[in-house]
Amino acid sequence: MSLSASDVEKVSLLARLLLTPQEIEALTSQLGQIVEYVDQLGEIDTEQVEPLAHAVELVNVWADDEVRPSLPRDEVLSGAPHRDEDSYLVPAVLGD
């Protein structure tokens, strides 16, 4: 499958990236090459093959429902780029 500049632009919004026209141009060609390379997977007959999400196939790993101490608020918020005394602050979420 080939990749167009408008595909790249759409994906950039989905990925929350803002690309310059130069970046879009470069990525259209680079991603196009990579995707073309990846397309060779199509050669393999995988009709009867189950997908494998984990190489080590564990199941049923649990924790007990026991409350442990949370982090002190100031530690949680210490890395926040913008905060007030008790919350993270972000540009208005209205209508988004």
Partner: peptide
């Protein structure tokens, strides 16, 4: 009070990993 019941996992910090609550 806001943000007093969080940890690296539920505040989405780099490197933190989820473990399923059996109950």
């Amino acid at each position: 009070p806001p943000n007093t019941q969080t940890c690296p996992v539920c505040s989405g910090m780099p490197g933190a990993l989820p473990v399923l609550n059996r109950e």
